[in-house]
Structure formats: C-alpha cells, structure tokens
C-alpha cells in the first residue's frame, strides 16, 4: 500500500484516536497520544490489510530547542514483511513525569530500544519488565541525549606534562 492508502485505512479503523497525520516524502506518519498507543499498535499489527508485524526501531527526540509542545517524542518505526510497506508512529510525551506505555507485548524486539529510551531520555516505559539503565553505567546521573545535557569533555585525571601545557594554554590566546 502507498502512504495515502495506509493513512486512510488507519483513519477508517480508528476514527477518534489519531491526532494528526503527515506524508513527508511519501512516508506514512501518524501522531498518537501516549494513552492510545497500545490500542493503535494492536490495530496496526492485527489488521489483515496493514499487518505491521515487524518493529524496526523505537527512537526518541527531545524538542527542547525547538520549543515544541510536548517536549519529548517517541518514534516507532513499523514495517510489514508480507505487504512491504511501513509507517511511523510519533508519540508526543509531556515534560512533567514523561511516560509512555510499552509495546513489547506485541513486538518482543521493542524491549531493548524502549530500555534505551529510558536510559537516554528518562522517559519511563509503563509495563516494561526491566526499567533500568542499558548503555550508561547503573549509577550514572542524567539522561545524555536530552538537549539540556551538556556536551562536555571529562577532566583528564593525570597528564605527564600538565603544568607545562596549562602554562602554554594561558600564554597563547585561542586563534579563533
């Protein structure tokens, strides 16, 4: 199916739950509220003409700099192996107590990317069996892919020529 047909089918099947739709470069995109996500996901997977049986990925975006409301967004990339068509679900998530229900009961492959979503953005996944850090160390503070998390360098623990280097830096103003 083409993007238009997919969106038309989803709109016909779930009349009131889809917030908005879009067709950037011909890809089908639907906007869904977090509390409707599981209902929409189950429909997309079970409907015989759509049959999105494969979850490609779940990624998160922090729209802090864009000043968009709501601040966070979780993006679910779905694909149908039988029909070779795809869809993106974009779920806006509020800044206060960010949370989104899990889809790992439908697609087991969602377990890891959802856990990464928690690790990197601090978005709580309701019903996820393991809500703990995945990539960062267990005692890490902060969520690195948020836009207010600074991109800094770690202080060097020790350096052979540290004093010499710091003098050099002081004496020489930056060229840019």
């Amino acid at each position: 199916m083409t993007g238009e047909e997919i969106i038309a089918t989803v709109k016909a099947g779930l009349p009131d739950t889809i917030q908005d739709t879009a067709l950037p470069q011909g890809d089908a995109v639907i906007f869904v509220a977090p509390d409707c996500l599981q209902k929409v996901a189950a429909f997309l997977k079970d409907d015989p003409s759509l049959k999105f049986d494969y979850l490609s990925d779940v990624s998160g975006v922090d729209y802090l700099i864009e000043e968009r409301e709501p601040r966070f967004e979780a993006v679910y990339l779905l694909y149908s192996i039988d029909h070779s068509h795809s869809i993106r679900i974009r779920v806006g998530i509020e800044e206060e107590n960010p949370s989104v229900p899990t889809v790992s009961e439908l697609w087991k492959g969602a377990l890891y990317p959802e856990q990464e979503l928690f690790d990197m953005f601090g978005i709580h996944i309701e019903g996820h069996p393991r809500m703990e850090r995945l990539i960062m160390p267990k005692d890490w503070v902060g969520h690195p892919l948020r836009k207010d998390y600074p991109l800094t360098t770690e202080p060097v623990a020790f350096s052979y020529n540290r004093d010499f280097k710091s003098e050099l830096v002081k004496s020489k103003p930056p060229t840019r």
Binding site: S56, D62, K108, Y112, P113
Partner: peptide, 19 residues
C-alpha cells in the same frame, strides 16, 4: 542535524539472541 538515530541490526538482535 538535530537528531541522528541509528537503527543497528546487532543491537536489535541481542535480546533475541539471548532468548
């Protein structure tokens, strides 16, 4: 780029591999 996300096949396969 505002956001770059890689869909990595190895990352997605690890839970299934442990299964």
């Amino acid at each position: 780029p505002y956001r770059v996300k890689l869909r990595a096949p190895s990352f997605m396969a690890i839970p299934g591999m442990c299964q």
